[in-house]
Structure formats: structure tokens, C-alpha cells
Design a protein around this nucleic acid. Sequence first.
DNA 1: TAACCCATGTAAACGGTTACATGATTTC
DNA 2: GAAATCATGTAACCGTTTACATGGGTTA
Lengths: 191, 191
Amino acid sequence: MRVLAGALLGLLAREPLSGTELNQQLQHRLGAAWRAGHSQIYPELARLEGEGAVSHEVLPQPDRPAMKRYALTEQGLGRLRAWASEPGEVSAVRDELAVKTYSLWLVNPVAAAAVLAAHERHHARRLAFYEGLLAELERAWDAEGGALGSPLFASVALVRRGLGYEREYTEWCRWVRARLARAPTTPGAPA
Amino acid sequence: MRVLAGALLGLLAREPLSGTELNQQLQHRLGAAWRAGHSQIYPELARLEGEGAVSHEVLPQPDRPAMKRYALTEQGLGRLRAWASEPGEVSAVRDELAVKTYSLWLVNPVAAAAVLAAHERHHARRLAFYEGLLAELERAWDAEGGALGSPLFASVALVRRGLGYEREYTEWCRWVRARLARAPTTPGAPA
DNA sequence: TAACCCATGTAAACGGTTACATGATTTC
DNA sequence: GAAATCATGTAACCGTTTACATGGGTTA
């Protein structure tokens, strides 16, 4: 199964959603793990429906165009369970800043520090967001009893992954910036 | 500029290399940042040569087929410097295991723990590799004087990123496994 | 001479991104 | 009734992956 299909089924396993809502939730709830635009989502939903993993009803809305609300079928739930239990390969990292880092010795340290600072701000912002979200989710999960069968368990686990990623990335940016700030000019790195 | 082009130029900025060697070094030196197969590398080299960023000479070898050894041109070095100094977007994370994690509440905890353990082993292995490599690189860099203009600085910085990533990923796997091991069975997660 | 390996390449299929398109509904 | 918005969708392009291809070289 494609990862995007797994992501959509995972969202629908919690509540029925329309294409637009899936698009938003993919960004907000699964943004730490995957990304996709609506032009990928609609065809994928059509395919999943053709395969019987998902079904929809048309929801007329008072002051908006009608939306198709998709829901997981029993078959879809089975597929999701099977996919989530599969081992699978370790996903390869694709990080443009890390590739640039390999050529950092060729770059003026002041310019390099500016690039790093911009990325650090971005990751620090996401880190703060995840910290708040995690506190909220853990409170709700604890209140429920902390069961592994609760969707909140999975949410907490994923947010913890995003939090750790952003924390580590932020700290790494800080380390590189500190190194860049130490020596003013060097051979091989012209103004 | 494409990221793959930046990766290849970054490798060639240190020493001239053939297509096969670029393929190997991309995996070993830049594996923490990018991945590509040889079927992408050869066309990209041809394009870079057409643009004047790279040139090649044919190297006949005693007991092997001849290879084309590519070297960075002055223009290529300029392009690499400019690209590495650009701010650029923050790369999106694409992690299949993290997507599966969002549906972990639907999975039998014993099966889930097995999946997590397999990934943990993989990341722990890479972590150990990076730890050894970092020690080696830092020793060499220090022996050189620790200049920012040394390629070793960039190598150290990138390996530190990979190390942090793998350490965080390993710890996260451990956290999830610990949670999964605590309660034996739960509603919503059948055998 | 047949089988194999190595370095280089090409082709087809797939997934993802960007840009364009449509019809309905509200707002100006 | 013109412009803006929303939900849905389609099309073209581009990068990546997988599979196939070639020619020189050595080994059995």
C-alpha cells in the first residue's frame, strides 16, 4: 500500500472526513510524518473507494458547496491494520540543508550563519508548537486511562517523534552556528 | 539548482571522481542527507558538463573498463558556493514508520513492538557507525587546527546531524516500545 | 568460448508538485 | 451581475525508482 493511502485511512479511522478536511488534517496532525497536496488526495480517495476501502455520502451544507464525507469501511480498517503491522523499510532522509552542510567549508561563515539561523528559527517554532500539543494530548490520554487502544496513544507517540526531531534539529543548528561564530575568517571561505 | 546537482558538486569539490565513485560516496558520505541511484547520477553529470560546471577526462585502467573522471570547473565551484549560501526551504519529512505510528492504536501491541524493535536496531546500528566516524573526523580536524575552511569541518557538521537524528530516532523507538510493553492487551487492538 | 563483472548508460513506470479548470454559493 | 470563495477535480511537468541494455575485461 502507498504511504499516502495509509495516511488517509489512518485519519478516517478516527472520524469521517471530506477531501478538504483530510487535506487540512494531513497537514496538522500528520505534518511531522508526511505531506501531500489536495491534487494527490482526491485521486487517492477515488482509488480507495474503487477498492472498497472507503465509502462516501454527499453532505449538503447550508451556506457552502456540498462535500463528500468519506468513511472507512470494514475492509479499509482491515487493510489499515495489516499495513500498520508490516515491518517496512526505513525511510531515506532527504534534507537539502544537510546536503548544503557538506559544502559549508566553501561558504563565507557569516552568510552560512544566517542560513542556519533561519532554519533554527523554523525548527524552534515547530518545537514549541509540539511541546504545547504534547502536554495537551498527554493530559487527555491520562484522563482516559492511558490505554494503548486509544487514538490518543498514537497521537502522543507521533507528536513525540516530531518533538524529538525538531529539538534535535534546533540543537544541531545551534552547534553549527556556535562553530561558525568562533573564528572570523578562514582560508577557503572568501567574503 | 537541484539538490542532486548540489550533492555531486559538493563531492567533486573535494576530489575528482568517476560516476561509480560518486555513486558510492553519495551513499557513504552523504547518506544522512540524500540518496540516489546511478541511473540518476549519469544523466545529471552529463547535464552539469553541458552547463560547464564539470569536466571529465577518460581514465584507462589496467584491469578494468576505463572510467570518466569528473572534476569541478571554476564555474562549478562558483555555482556550488552560491547554492550552499542560499537560504532555501525547510525540507519536508517523509517517514513511513511515523505515518504508521498514527494508526498504532489499531495494532496488536506485540506485533507493533516487533516492528519498532526492527527499526530501533537499524537506527542504533547507524548511530554506532556515526559515533565512530565522528570521533575519527574530529581527531583529524583538530589535528589540522580546526579551521572552518577545511572540508573536515563540513564533514563533522554533517555527521553530527546524522548522529543526532539516529540517536533521537533510537530513543523514540525505545520510548514507544516501553509503552507497548506496559499493558498486555487493550480494547481496539485485537490479536 | 562461455560466464561473469564492472562502468556506463537508457527506458518505462511511479509519485509528487504546480498549474489550470469547474460549478456552486456568498458578497460587493 | 461581477468578484471572491470553497470544494472538487484534471493535466502537465519533473524527479525518483526499477528494470533493461551495452561494451570492455577478466576468469573458468
